[in-house]
Design a protein around this nucleic acid. Structure first.
Length: 218
DNA sequence: CTCCCGATAT
DNA sequence: ATATCAGGAG
């Protein structure tokens, strides 16, 4: 049985209402930062690493490197040690130095707003670029990370496996005013209830709206 | 497609 | 021991 378009739209509205009621409608960022370029570096470091670990590392990192110029001039081996515990440290360090050099030399020390300009930076892919666009510039954008992909699929809002396809399918389903918030709400849900291992469906406030929780009939 | 890679929970 | 974590590059 395939869910009708109207039924799905109503279910999405109900899901969004419950997420808003549970988590609020104010955007919060899990990565500590004071400036856009600090957020960019934090997101680069967050690849396959918990945000809690990134925050431990950036707390000291941003004391040591106080500007984009400091990062651009960093010694590779030294920066590798500074970010070691986030994993993938060799590539991340190389990318951060290259990225910050570009920001200083080609973007006047600012973080660009366009998706194409962001993804042209070393270490910045579609997901990282969309975090910047949403959080820094309030441009409606859907961030597809591991949680968003997993939970959007479980909720039956996409069947795609490619993150970019997930992003486009979610754009069809979600109202634009919830694009930015979707990511942060789903991450919050994914860290506490709808975890990758042992999801607590019985405790989930979306269980009656979720095909994977067995809460939907027919 | 493979590789990058440490920390943590289970 | 193994799965997973605010992915991206070659």
């Amino acid at each position: 049985m395939r869910e009708s378009k109207k039924a799905r739209a109503e279910r999405v509205d109900a899901i969004l209402a419950r997420l808003d009621a549970e988590y609020g409608t104010e955007y919060r960022c899990y990565l500590d930062h004071e400036t856009p370029w600090q957020l960019l570096i934090a997101v680069i470091l967050s690849a396959q690493c918990t945000d809690a670990r990134v925050n431990i590392v950036t707390k000291e990192l941003f004391k040591k490197y106080r500007s984009l110029e400091d990062f651009a001039a960093a010694e590779l081996s030294e920066l590798e040690q500074d970010i070691h515990s986030t994993g993938f440290y060799h590539m991340k360090a190389k990318n951060i130095i290259s990225c910050c050099k570009d920001l200083v030399e080609k973007h006047g020390g600012t973080v660009p707003r366009e998706l194409s300009e962001l993804t042209a930076l070393a270490g910045v892919g579609r997901k990282t670029a969309n975090v910047i666009r949403g959080n820094v510039y309030d441009d409606p954008s859907i961030v597809v990370d591991t949680h968003v992909k997993r939970i959007s699929k479980k909720l039956g809002l996409t069947k795609a496996d490619d993150p970019e396809k997930v992003e486009y399918e979610l754009m069809e389903v979600l109202p634009k005013d919830h694009w930015i918030l979707w990511n942060i709400h789903i991450i919050t849900l994914g860290r506490t209830i709808c975890t990758a291992r042992n999801p607590k469906c019985s405790q989930c406030f979306l269980r009656e709206l979720c095909p994977s929780a067995g809460g939907m009939k027919g």
